[in-house]
């Protein structure tokens, strides 16, 4: 259960939004929309605990995320604007390091299988630097397949993906939602989800 009450955001001298409220139970998705500079990324970073809200608070399982500290991060997977990949490492290495840092071991073969699923078969031994932007995005998304976090926070994940990859990601999110996971996603793409689990937030 992720709840936000009367969130406000101030960046520099500008007030981006005030009084944002939502409550997401298991199996629900929050789609954050709004023009550029309306604070979508800021809101997502607040949910991750990277940015402290100017007003209001965010609670995970009824506890303020700030007081949960790093324990909160076991429940969280975040993919931001930047892919969070090391250019020098191959997709396999990137994936194994990412999973090692969250405390789970991922073998070489398991990583190969996961990368095959996101459509990177045959590319898993090339340094990320020479992959295309779309392929790097897919590598970043592969992190979602190996983590067991119930809360996904995805910032503009569908940009620079081709239509087949978009279908793949949307099915991934639907599956996550069906299994009771919570997703917060900033995108303009429409999702095919039942109305009771689909919320929209417009930051005008």
């Amino acid at each position: 259960m992720l709840e936000a009450t009367s969130l406000g955001c101030v960046r520099g001298d500008r007030r981006l939004f005030t009084n944002v409220n939502f409550a997401l139970g298991p199996g629900s998705l929050l789609q954050v929309q709004g023009p550029n500079g309306s604070g979508k990324t800021s809101l997502l970073r607040m949910i991750c605990g990277l940015l402290a809200p100017a007003e209001g608070e965010i609670r995970w399982q009824a506890a303020n995320i700030h007081s949960l500290g790093e324990e909160y991060f076991t429940s969280l997977a975040y993919i931001g604007h930047r892919n969070g990949l090391k250019e020098e490492l191959t997709p396999i290495e990137n994936l194994r390091v990412a999973s090692g840092l969250t405390g789970t071991q991922l073998s070489h073969d398991e990583a190969t299988i996961v990368l095959g699923k996101v459509g990177l078969a045959g590319r898993e031994h090339l340094p990320a630097r020479i992959l295309s932007e779309g392929q790097r995005r897919r590598t970043a998304l592969a992190r979602l397949l190996i983590c067991k976090a119930p809360l996904w926070v995805l910032d503009e994940v569908l940009t620079s993906l081709d239509s087949s990859a978009v279908r793949f990601v949307t099915s991934l999110i639907r599956e996550h939602t069906n299994k009771g996971g919570i997703t917060v996603v900033a995108t303009h793409h429409e999702f095919d989800l039942p109305a009771d689990s689909y919320q929209r937030l417009d930051l005008a």
């Binding site: 892919n83 090391k86 990412a98 405390g103």
Partner: peptide
């Protein structure tokens, strides 16, 4: 910081 991995490091479930 530039490639966004520092954000990921801040979000790992262990003390910073």
């Amino acid at each position: 910081y530039q490639d966004g991995t520092l954000e990921q490091l801040l979000l790992t479930p262990q003390p910073l």
